[in-house]
């Protein structure tokens, strides 16, 4: 069964693409088949972290929407490219051409689009997890992606603006009948040591916190040189995010098991 997961945040710069790319390889390390989709349509950048060149990414989601290519043309198998020993990672990129970006923003995606992509990936690529890396904020296209997904992972930094935005976002998602899970990102290292932090923040923002990722200069500086966890598997960031990946698997397994047969 394929689970669709949205990595989202209220504000930009919270580490959505870094988290998406690292989460995808960690889920693969746990034996899962993962597809990461760059839905940050106004500023796509996931391909940079995966080291996917424009020559490699000949077709994008935009080409598929406008019927310029087949589905298989936009699905890139990065398993060998990333030298993954287990599982699999596929990548579907968005166009970086300004004219394509403007067109897709103006016209918007159909609600059928997300379900169609997930179903194709499930049926044709036997994918366990589809991860949508979204555009920040509360725009309609992002909310469509969230509404079409099984799990929403909200990234939040430890500042007032992010707290406000994450609280409001989780309240909105609740109105949509969607439970969101929060991961605290770029947490000051001394604060991240507090074992009470996840439960205390959960109480305040009224949403479950499933992970705490401290701020590491190494992760920030590594950003455009590949997927951090692959280069530094023993780094505390990798082990903390691995816990989040395991938690995501637990949560989705629980929700699948509780579904009526």
């Amino acid at each position: 069964m394929t689970t669709t997961c949205v990595v989202h945040s209220y504000r930009g710069g919270t580490g959505k693409s870094t988290t998406t790319s690292n989460l995808s390889v960690l889920l693969a390390a746990l034996g899962k088949r993962v597809a990461a989709i760059d839905m940050d349509i106004t500023s796509p950048g996931l391909h940079v972290i995966y080291n996917v060149s424009s020559q490699m990414m000949r077709n994008t989601l935009n080409d598929y929407i406008y019927n310029r290519c087949e589905f298989s043309d936009i699905v890139m198998d990065l398993t060998n490219h990333l030298k993954l020993p287990r599982g699999a990672v596929y990548f579907l990129g968005s166009s970086m051409k300004p004219e394509e970006i403007v067109k897709v923003i103006r016209e918007g995606y159909s609600e059928k689009f997300f379900r169609h992509i997930s179903e194709k990936l499930s049926r044709e690529y036997n994918i366990d997890y589809v991860i949508f890396d979204t555009h920040p904020g509360l725009n309609e296209d992002t909310l469509l992606a969230i509404m079409s997904s099984d799990v929403s992972l909200l990234l939040m930094r430890m500042d007032k603006q992010d707290v406000t935005g994450t609280y409001i976002t989780s309240q909105i998602l609740r109105k949509f009948g969607k439970l969101s899970y929060v991961t605290l990102n770029m947490v000051p290292p001394n604060l991240a040591e507090s074992s009470d932090l996840p439960s205390e923040v959960s109480k305040i923002i009224e949403a479950p916190v499933i992970g705490v990722l401290p701020f590491y200069e190494e992760v920030l500086s590594h950003r455009s040189r590949g997927v951090f966890c692959l280069h530094h598997p023993q780094h505390p960031y990798s082990s903390q995010l691995l816990r989040v990946a395991k938690r995501v698997i637990e949560l989705t397994t629980q929700s699948q098991n509780s579904m009526p047969v």
Partner: peptide
């Protein structure tokens, strides 16, 4: 012809959002 993945600005789900 374009696939059915665009131009549904008045779709039910968007209206709900």
């Amino acid at each position: 012809p374009e696939r059915e993945f665009i131009s549904d600005k008045d779709s039910e789900m968007r209206a709900k959002i």
